[in-house]
């Protein structure tokens, strides 16, 4: 039983947290690719930016002496999302729209997005320094411990308050996105434009409006993902830059342009990473009793050493691109 609890704590919970972050980031990447047809490299930095916006807001509230039962990061989330959405619109207007109007190739757009990456990162480091910050300077992380003694376990399943909130927020956002894409006029127009941009234009769909909506969704979701990442680990300017590749991996595995694929891809990559570095000996230890005298499981039976955790995502990314660039689901790119 303890082995199962260990597995839940180490794989199920942390994999889900990471998967939520990846999924929310990958949705933005995939939507931007679907509508604007370019790989938006600055997405990781839009996440970091979101994290810092929330951090500043939380700091302001705390300085004003406001205390809430929920972690500050979540309290300020809606406001931070709105600010991030506006910033995303501004970035598009300032840097991408002029190139788009000139009819620039996707590659040029991609390089431009790297320029945006550098600018955001430079600014964040300039303003906040390159050190690490935490949302929990003034608050403490509540940890829920679910007692498992009733099932014969000696250790509890432990999960922190922000983790629980993350699951709730991610689930709510994914459902909201689903309803938006399948029920609303604009959501359907977005799918239409991702499916066939020329026909969308011919149908009289206001494509400029759809582009704006795309940035609003991508920007605000990136903000949520950034805040979550900051809450789960810590906040630093190059935080998201390190996970922009896993996010691309998630979007590509799910098929670029497919929002649902991105969600599945996010969790797939997250669990692949978590399982690859998981030490199976911890779970299989009871088998030692069955093994003959003198034989025992090695003390570390993980697939790859922990320091290669992110590399797992890179390998999946490269292999997917080489084997099935349109993603693992059927129905090739549109």
């Amino acid at each position: 039983m303890d082995e199962l609890i260990f597995f839940i704590n180490r794989v199920l919970i942390s994999g889900t947290v990471l998967g939520s972050i990846y999924a929310l980031g990958a949705i933005g990447v995939t939507l931007i690719f679907g509508i604007l047809r370019f790989a938006h490299f600055a997405h990781g930095d839009m996440m970091t930016m979101g994290g810092f916006i929330a951090f500043v807001l939380a700091g302001l509230l705390t300085a004003m002496g406001i205390v809430t039962p929920l972690p500050m990061g979540f309290v300020v989330l809606p406001v931070a999302m709105v600010i991030a959405a506006f910033l995303a619109l501004g970035i598009d207007k300032g840097f991408y729209a002029p190139l788009r109007e000139r009819g620039a190739k996707p590659v040029t757009m991609l390089i431009a997005s790297i320029g945006v990456t550098l600018m955001i990162q430079g600014l964040l480091r300039l303003i906040f320094g390159s050190g690490t910050r935490s949302f929990y300077a003034t608050e403490s992380k509540d940890i829920f411990r679910i007692d498992m003694s009733a099932f014969g376990g000696t250790r509890p399943i432990s999960i922190t308050e922000p983790q629980v909130l993350m699951f709730v927020v991610t689930a709510a956002l994914v459902i909201a996105l689903h309803l938006f894409l399948t029920r609303s006029r604009l959501g359907k127009a977005m799918r239409a434009m991702a499916d066939n941009a020329d026909l969308a234009q011919v149908s009289g769909i206001n494509t400029a409006l759809v582009v704006r909506v795309t940035w609003i969704i991508a920007g605000s979701l990136a903000c949520v993902a950034g805040v979550m990442l900051a809450l789960d680990v810590a906040l630093m300017p190059d935080l998201a830059f390190n996970i922009v590749l896993p996010i691309f991996a998630a979007a590509i595995v799910g098929g670029l342009g497919h929002a649902y694929g991105a969600i599945v891809g996010g969790f797939l990559i997250a669990f692949a990473e978590t399982l690859a570095v998981f030490n199976w000996t911890a779970v299989l230890r009871p088998l030692n009793g069955l093994l003959p005298e003198g034989m025992a499981l090695p003390s570390n039976l993980s697939l790859v050493p922990t320091e290669y955790k992110l590399t797992v995502a890179f390998v999946i990314l490269v292999v997917t691109l080489l084997v099935r660039p349109t993603g693992i689901f059927k129905g090739a790119s549109t």
Binding site: F95, L99, A104, T108, I111, A112, I114, G115, V116, T117, L118, M119, I120, Q121, G122, L123, R125, L126, S130, P237
Partner: peptide, 15 residues
């Protein structure tokens, strides 16, 4: 860190 920002500005302006 200023140089990271400058690099970003240079590339976007150039493009």
């Amino acid at each position: 860190q200023m140089r990271v920002f400058v690099l970003g500005v240079v590339i976007t302006v150039a493009l």
